[in-house]
Design a binder for these strands. Structure first.
Length: 188
DNA sequence: ATGAAGATGAAT
DNA sequence: TTCATCTTCATC
């Protein structure tokens, strides 16, 4: 497997997102192929970057190819990959990973056995991979992160996001078709 | 200084 | 469907 080229993230999150499906994500050696993602751009009212820069979302406004990690509901961590040029705050939320490497470490962190429950959600995968706010702003091409290009072309399914009136016809979410490791079924 | 909402997950 | 849990950010 070959590392992702550095320029991979230097474009719109909407272009990056579908190509992330099948890319292997490891954090300190634990992880596996990404099976579900969601794209966020600055025109999206649901995006943290919608209302402009704040201390929390600062890294989204910086250079691409770094991690944006935020606290969700005071409980979970969520991992994003920052995309596009500095000043353009786009990112892809990593929503699910197929557990492949470091299974026992992930089980220990999650307190669960079943592989399907290990990384099938943005909060779950951060707990399983040990991602916290300490990873916020870290480059994705250096330890503890490792990203490996996919070897084949997976069958990528897509869906519009639910509950948003804005840009309802746009594709936001992508996943590996038929994967049992998704956070939830893909819509259309 | 204060409060409402939140890119979730697990249990009921 | 409810609730845990607490940071963030807008508003006062």
């Amino acid at each position: 497997m070959s590392p992702l080229p550095p320029e991979f993230f230097a474009r719109s999150a909407h272009d990056v997102a579908p190509e992330l499906i099948g890319v292997t994500l490891l954090v300190d050696g634990a992880g596996g192929p990404i099976v579900e993602v969601e794209a966020y751009d600055q025109d999206d009212p649901a995006s943290h970057s919608f209302r402009g820069p704040t201390p929390r979302n600062a890294v989204m406004f910086g250079p691409p190819g770094v991690a944006y990690v935020y606290r969700s509901y005071g409980i979970h961590w969520c991992l994003n990959f920052v995309c596009d040029a500095p000043g353009r705050a786009e990112a892809v939320l990593i929503r699910a990973v197929r557990p492949e490497h470091g299974l026992e470490r992930m089980r220990a962190r999650r307190g669960l056995e079943r592989e399907r429950d290990l990384c099938s959600g943005p909060g779950k995968l951060c707990q399983a991979l040990g991602v916290t706010n300490e990873h916020d702003g870290l480059p994705l091409d250096a330890p503890p992160f490792e990203l490996f290009a996919r070897t084949g072309i997976p069958e990528v399914a897509s869906g519009t996001r639910i509950g948003l009136s804005v840009a309802a016809d746009r594709v936001w979410r992508y996943g590996l078709a038929g994967s049992p490791f998704l956070s939830r079924p893909l819509g259309r």
